[in-house]
């Protein structure tokens, strides 16, 4: 697997720790929501960056008060057709003002990248042989959009009238 940000392979400074694995001594870790709930004090007390991994049936609203603790939130796409994380990413950006990294993990495919980007996802965990061309193509597919992006920018409706 590789991590792609800004259309290029990026160093992944994060370790995703499985629920049954011991937490490493220090270092940036991503944990599941279940683990966060079970070991909140420990995790929050660690003097290291913390990330959260949400399943597709775990809306960010369930951790609303703790969102500021996370520098990265990984959103699972168990199958590319499960579109719940698009709403979760949108809510993280718009409703909760989350400014950290939102990372798509799971069944992340070429043809959904643009939707992910428009919903506020800015990092992508993909197979090693995933073509980077896809990331170059995505933002160029459409010159304008009918909807506002989760991260802002005028829609076609607004652009028509001087935005």
């Amino acid at each position: 697997m590789k991590l792609v940000k800004n259309a290029a392979v990026a160093e992944d400074g994060w370790t995703t720790v499985a629920d049954d694995e011991n937490l490493p001594e220090g270092g940036a870790v991503i944990v599941s929501l279940a683990r966060f709930k079970a070991e909140r004090d420990t995790l929050v007390g660690r003097n290291a960056p913390l990330g959260l991994r949400l399943k597709s049936n775990e809306p960010p609203a369930t951790v609303a008060e703790d969102l500021e603790r996370f520098s990265v939130i990984a959103l699972e796409f168990p199958i590319f057709r499960d579109g719940r994380a698009y709403s979760h990413a949108t809510q993280l950006r718009q409703r909760f003002g989350f400014e950290g990294e939102i990372r798509a993990v799971g069944d992340v495919l070429w043809d959904q990248l643009l939707n992910m980007i428009r919903c506020g996802i800015d990092a992508f965990e993909v197979d090693d042989d995933f073509p980077l061309d896809a990331f170059d193509e995505a933002p160029k597919l459409f010159s304008n959009y009918y909807q506002p992006a989760a991260v802002g920018g005028p829609s076609i409706f607004e652009k028509r009238h001087g935005a």
């Binding site: 579109g83 698009y86 949108t90 959009y145 009918y146 909807q147 409706f157």
Partner: peptide
């Protein structure tokens, strides 16, 4: 029609 076209959040309902 326009608002729903290529809606990034609602393409995988």
């Amino acid at each position: 029609r326009q608002w729903s076209t290529f809606h990034p959040e609602f393409s995988y309902l």
